[in-house]
């Protein structure tokens, strides 16, 4: 499962999850976001997590990224057990290994594009230069623009630059095109695809848009807190071939 950049299968597991359960208490109501998820993710693969809203996609992603902890079950990242990790270990894990991209970009409005990337490169151990990261996403000429001066697509590409600038092992993207029109979405997906291809970063993209699934190595369906289907794409589509 999974492929090396050259197309050969790669069976090195990055994530292993068993029986992941997550229960939220929202006021008086208990929400079962995950009901026992078993999942392996492999080095260098591009995975699309599909599912309707409320299916537990974001929860799963957050647990994989060390943003949240599971109520029950176990998840490991290489030889790190994320389930039993303390808060500062999770922080360290995120700092060294994970890049995030969010639906609403979550840029810091008071910082320019370059500075938004620098926020991350300043604390990473082997970062690229913020300018280089922005060049990868095609924003080499927008370095000193504040978020408010950038379009949605541009903002999301800054967010991707910020996520990849530390040279992370995994890139976790939560609805990266959710707030964008389709043309802009394609540009953003191209940036993600390029990072996955050129840097070999394990990439997980959450979407409820089934059309995006075409660019994945594997497509994982979630519904109602459980994995309902895992499917490998025989042929990956390039982002510009996607339409929605």
């Amino acid at each position: 499962m999974g492929r090396e950049a050259g197309g050969a299968l790669n069976t090195k597991k990055v994530f292993q999850a068993q029986g992941l359960t997550k229960v939220y208490t929202m006021g008086a109501v208990q929400v079962h976001a995950l009901r026992g998820v078993d999942l392996d993710l492999y080095e260098g693969e591009l995975v699309v997590l599909l599912g309707p809203s409320g299916s537990g996609k974001s929860t799963l992603l957050n647990i994989l990224g060390g943003l949240d902890t599971a109520t029950a079950g176990e998840v490991t990242y290489r030889d790190h057990n994320l389930t039993s990790a303390a808060d500062n270990e999770l922080t360290e894990y995120r700092r060294q290994h994970v890049g995030f991209v969010f639906q609403f970009y979550n840029l810091i409005p008071s910082l320019t594009a370059r500075e938004n990337v620098a926020v991350v490169t300043e604390i990473a151990s082997t970062p690229m230069k913020p300018e280089d990261a922005l060049a990868i996403v095609g924003l080499g000429d927008r370095l000193d623009h504040f978020p408010a001066q950038l379009s949605g697509g541009e903002q999301q590409r800054v967010a991707i630059a910020r996520a990849i600038a530390k040279n992370p092992m995994v890139l976790l993207c939560d609805e990266p095109t959710g707030a964008l029109d389709s043309a802009t979405g394609v540009v953003v997906l191209e940036a993600l695809e390029r990072v996955n291809r050129e840097l070999g970063t394990t990439t997980v993209i959450i979407t409820h848009n089934a059309d995006i699934a075409g660019m994945a190595d594997r497509v994982i369906h979630l519904s109602n807190g459980l994995i309902s289907d895992i499917r490998a794409n025989e042929t990956k589509k390039a982002p510009h071939e996607l339409h929605w």
């Binding site: 360290e92 894990y93 995120r94 890049g99 995030f100 409005p109 604390i123 910020r162």
Partner: peptide
């Protein structure tokens, strides 16, 4: 809130 979250997500300590 969201800025704090994103800064923490990228590995800044408490």
């Amino acid at each position: 809130r969201d800025q704090i979250a994103v800064i923490k997500a990228f590995g800044y300590h408490n």
